[in-house]
Amino acid sequence: MILPIAPYLYLHGFASSPRSAKAQYFADRFQALGISLTIPDLNQGDFYHLTLSRQIHQVEDLLPTHPPITLMGSSFGGLTAAWLGERNPQIDRLILLAPAFQFLAHWEPKLGAAQMQQWQSEQSLVTYHYGEAKPMAIDYGFVTDLAQYDEAEIQRPVPTLILHGEQDEVIPVQASRAFAAHRPWVKLIELPSDHSLANVQSDLWQAIQDFCRLR
């Protein structure tokens, strides 16, 4: 089903869902301003075959052809949003929450070489899916697809706000610092939080309102 498009879209993170705490918090905040926030389900009922390419194509099918469009994304949804901003000129503003830059470089060491080799051999890895609150399998195609993307190629000067926790244990804030360092159109705000950003939701919302001139 194609969702009705609002000028604001939110992309949830890896192994998450439109029901996540951040997604619902922002939906409520935008609704209070009379603005609809479209939150597609990036799992598509088939988490096993999820890839960055699939997420990009799914959202591109939802995008209207004319600007302005503000795209928000959390973690892996933030990485997806960054690539969508590169490829789609009708997107004129990006808000990235702890974006998953250098995702494989951070994830592979945590899994370890043995588990990565097992994943490649068996073509399946069981990981915890927070949106479904249970372990779920994902295909090794997730890795091979993601390895094709070089973040150095993200160069379209889309006004971008990055909000990242200084104590992020999943994607270190250094990943966002490196991304912003040579892109003057990117504003990075570091916050006293971890990857969830759960304790700074009001700060996130204040920064987003300022960036989007919503007040």
Results as ranks from 00 to 15, higher is better:
102 Q>W: 12
130 Y>N: 08
19 R>P: 02
2 I>W: 15
130 Y>G: 01
201 Q>S: 07
86 E>A: 07
213 R>F: 06
203 D>Y: 10
54 R>F: 13
154 I>R: 01
75 S>W: 05
186 V>W: 04
201 Q>W: 00
93 R>Q: 13
101 F>A: 10
201 Q>F: 01
44 Q>S: 11
12 H>I: 07
9 L>V: 10
126 V>Q: 12
19 R>W: 12
16 S>M: 07
94 L>S: 05
163 L>Q: 04
178 A>E: 13
178 A>Y: 05
205 W>G: 14
187 K>M: 10
127 T>G: 01
147 A>I: 02
87 R>Q: 12
126 V>D: 10
197 L>K: 12
165 G>S: 04
33 L>Q: 14
95 I>T: 07
66 H>N: 11
18 P>A: 14
108 E>D: 06
97 L>H: 00
206 Q>W: 04
186 V>D: 02
134 K>P: 15
198 A>T: 03
137 A>M: 06
25 Y>R: 07
21 A>D: 10
31 Q>I: 02
159 P>S: 02
150 D>R: 15
176 S>W: 00
78 G>Q: 09
79 L>H: 08
36 S>E: 10
61 D>G: 14
43 N>R: 14
137 A>S: 11
183 R>P: 01
165 G>Q: 14
41 D>W: 09
6 A>T: 01
174 Q>D: 09
59 V>P: 11
209 Q>P: 00
36 S>T: 12
75 S>Y: 10
41 D>N: 05
28 D>N: 08
125 L>G: 04
71 L>H: 01
72 M>G: 01
182 H>E: 03
132 E>S: 14
82 A>D: 11
114 A>G: 09
4 P>F: 13
16 S>E: 12
163 L>R: 06
115 Q>R: 10
180 A>M: 15
116 M>G: 00
74 S>V: 02
136 M>A: 06
21 A>E: 10
10 Y>L: 14
144 T>M: 06
112 G>W: 11
119 W>V: 06
35 I>T: 00
28 D>C: 08
63 L>R: 15
79 L>R: 05
103 F>H: 13
168 D>E: 04
134 K>D: 05
45 G>N: 12
82 A>Y: 08
147 A>P: 04
189 I>D: 02
184 P>R: 05
48 Y>D: 13
4 P>E: 14
196 S>T: 09
200 V>N: 03
97 L>I: 11
30 F>P: 01
157 P>D: 07
11 L>A: 13
78 G>R: 04
170 V>Y: 00
73 G>T: 11
168 D>P: 04
204 L>C: 08
166 E>Y: 00
59 V>A: 14
129 H>C: 04
23 A>H: 01
82 A>P: 00
155 Q>S: 06
26 F>H: 03
215 R>N: 14
150 D>A: 11
159 P>E: 05
115 Q>A: 13
178 A>G: 02
122 E>A: 07
196 S>I: 13
19 R>L: 07
50 L>F: 09
